[in-house]
Nucleic acid binder design. Sequence first.
DNA 1: TCTGGGGTCCTAGGACCC
DNA 2: TCTGGGGTCCTAGGACCC
Length: 438
Amino acid sequence: MKMKIYLFGELSLMSSIPFTRKIALVDCNSFYVSCERLFNPKIRKKPVIVLSNNDGCIISRSNEAKALGIKMGEPYFKAKDIIIKNKVEVFSSNYSLYGDLSRRVMRTLKKFGSPIEIYSIDEAFLDLSNFPDNQIESIGKEIKATVLQWTGIPTSIGIAQTKTLSKIANHIAKKKLSGVANLIGVENIDPILEKIDINDVWGVGKQLTKFYKKNGIYNAKQLKNKSNTWIKKNSNVLSSRTALELRGISCIHLETTTTKRKSCVVSRSFGKRVETFCELKEAVVNYCLNASEKIRSDSLVAKTITVFIRTSPFQKNFGYYSNSKTIDFAISTNNSIEIVKTAVFILENIFKNGYQYQKAGVMLTGLSNANQKTNLFSSEKDEKISALMRSMDNTNFKYGRSALSLASAGVQKKWNMRRNHSSKIDTANFYNLPKIHA
DNA sequence: TCTGGGGTCCTAGGACCC
DNA sequence: TCTGGGGTCCTAGGACCC
């Protein structure tokens, strides 16, 4: 679609040149697997998978693993037969490694100087509108080649007029040898959209897929051509945005500035079932320390805390129990001690004896900037506490998380996660760098 | 035996007010 | 005994994303 825009947001510079919005989605291929392969050349051509926390589910698969029929999100134990039979290489997830490599990829993308939105650990949208239409494909290829050369991570790039279309272009790029798909300048997009299943459209999940199929919409083309009033009436604004985006009308804008988070959750499944209050408390205290450190590092304070516990929803023979409770702090806080105290109080309230707990979590919500002195009662004592928190964070940064902790956090941590397949590579920690033997 | 974790946004419905 | 209408704000739950 050709349209006029205001360059740099200034009316005086209103452009009269025909202008096409060109959004690229850069997506790292099998990102976690690619990270593991980077430091382990022996697994380059082999089927590889990476497991979620606790070695629970399969969350990243190499193409070879996909070809074996291993599904995304499948529980590990269910796929074990295929995995053993085909000698699939298995890794526990190693988020500090993936986070570090992600930052390298994003830094590389920023070098191109276009507006960028870092959308997730392995994806970024780039606004390439400044480049002429006829150069766009080669720009895409250049980006891909540069990221591969500088970071070793393979990517796929889809380019189109809207984010939703660039997602589709990326979907197509994944199947191309070049790894780049460009929909800019395509006269009739319908034959392309017709081949895209409705559930492969960005923003269409399980429920919407069910709803659309019931109404005869099976692919992206059918959604694109459905009347907007019908969509709005029978679904919601998000769905109508998706449909407009399929038509090339941009509704979901590039978010180039990072906004502070609005909530912070720390939750884990246990390595083995937990039955005693004491152990559950240990876990919750640890999650609190983790969460409060996170919000402090973002200079945020929390208004509300929620604690939840539950047994496994998959083991019906033991009886299912799940409960949570939320409490407002008198004054927003990021003080570990206060957060822990409140969480333990909640836990005492919701804990019931005689259950095998599988998971617990802590949620800090109503986050706001810590430096805004909104209360009249801040005192010298508060200053002392923040100083204490600061030195705790500094020490833990230097000597590893939980070097300094609270006694109630425990030391045994029998409930801790299973990680039986860790590559133990940590590029963010000097002492864990891979050793090279000459 | 073993089924992840961390986010955001939207909406319906209740509470409350005039 | 009858029992309006409209507005705002908040929250819980659902759906989606990676």
